[in-house]
Design a protein around this nucleic acid. Structure first.
Lengths: 249, 249
DNA sequence: AAGTGGTCTAGACCACCAA
DNA sequence: TGGTGGTCTAGACCACTTT
């Protein structure tokens, strides 16, 4: 990355050109985990203001090429990890290390969007199971699973009001027995709220992929989940599924 | 949004607090399509620098709450449109207006990532079909479908070397006959390159959801597609699919 | 021509981490 | 304590759209 200065000629923004130059440097002269020079030095080297350089770094971080940690520095990020989110039976409780881990369970009123999905009143508390997914020792996703009280009444397996992890596990086991017969899923871009950011070891506002799932059994919505994946470090994968067709005109 | 000033006390960043205030205002005092005051005015009203205000607006735009157009202004964005990306037969050529439209077809060397997926040499040209998806008159996605020459040799349906739309349609029809038996799909965050940005009516660098698909027939990779969806305006949906199970510990 | 959002600057200070 | 990235300022100019 011996580049010094950069001569503009077109009306292409500086930060855009800068990003292109840096991308090329990352591809050819850097290896995963390697540290970049600090921002002040890089800005000086390219002859731009630090804010402009940061605009380029912001994009590279968004694309998962860089990893920045306050007080530490900027390093070349490893390729994104693929996380399977296909609606099929996959990992199970006793699996190695790469599986969802239940961290808590408590009753709370659902967000309005979730309330609408579950068709319950926003003020009425529902059971919320909190889970976390980690790979390679790094948290990559958190999830809240919402189950309306109405679904739990018949044969509800919550005799003692023991809150916490044990209760969460019990809820999952019970939902298992319910055998949900279908699910609708959606993926969209969002930004991490304060609690999610803390759980994912990120700064608030960091870009995340939000996966919302609606579970139905016997034509009835029995649960809804909102999972938050780190957009910088992971790629959501959907496995092979039956015969398909290309369409369009 | 009568708010004036804002008194900090915690170490919460100003732009974050600002975003919270604006979000609330959007929920209660604004309706879809309504214009916000301009950035200089808003900044003054909240007693912050314009750059700080913009940091808050950037996030709201990322979350799909706002729509900003240079030279025009900032308006409240409509809810994101759901785009079905489930691997099932859905819309067909003659469908209303909401379907993929083939815009071009030509031979070109694939990006390295695609070359690896197709297991071909990065310098060897492959057939590329360009398509665009629009909803409500707005382009929301573009796609490049890559088909290696090797797959086309046997009974290749490209007698005349007629480039362009007609050829693209022919390619799709032919792939249809091939009856791909499975597909692997992945979703990740990216930023729009110059050509994608132009086709999607956005600025370069805008956040997009990148969906890569690998089509296989008879255990062989016959094609790969890279689709780019506007992250601000759409939500990718995956329909109901068979029995499932919740897992974890 | 006027008004909008987009880019850019040259500083400053803060929060965090490691030595 | 020194170095890093994160936040913030008060300007300036540019590209674009509308009138």
């Amino acid at each position: 990355m011996g580049s010094t200065q950069l001569d503009q000629q077109t009306s292409e923004p500086k930060y855009w050109h800068l990003k292109t130059v840096l991308t090329e440097a990352l591809d050819t002269e850097f290896s995963v985990g390697q540290a970049l020079p600090n921002e002040r030095e890089l800005a000086a080297r390219f002859g731009v203001a630090r804010a402009t350089l940061r605009q380029a770094l912001d994009q590279l971080e968004l694309e998962g090429r860089l990893q920045r940690r306050r007080g530490v520095g900027t390093t070349v990020a490893p390729p994104r990890v693929g996380v399977d989110v296909s609606p099929r039976r996959h990992t199970w409780p006793g699996a190695p290390g790469d599986a969802w881990v239940t961290t808590d369970c408590a009753a709370a009123p659902p967000p309005t969007a979730v309330a609408r999905m579950l068709d319950v009143h926003p003020d009425e508390p529902v059971e919320v199971v909190h889970r976390v997914l980690a790979t390679h020792g790094q948290a990559v996703a958190t999830e809240q699973l919402y189950v309306p009280a109405g679904v739990l009444t018949d044969s509800g397996p919550l005799p003692e009001a023991a809150g916490g992890v044990a209760r969460g596990r019990r809820m999952l086991a019970w939902l298992q027995e319910l055998r949900p017969d279908s699910q609708d899923r959606a993926v969209e871009l969002g930004s991490a709220g304060a609690p999610e950011a803390r759980r994912l070891d990120q700064l608030p506002g960091a870009p995340v992929l939000i996966v919302t799932t609606r579970y139905t059994a016997a034509g009835r919505t029995v649960a809804a989940a909102v999972a938050t994946y780190r957009a910088d470090t992971c790629r959501l994968t959907f496995g092979t599924q039956g015969t398909v067709s290309l369409s369009g005109s």
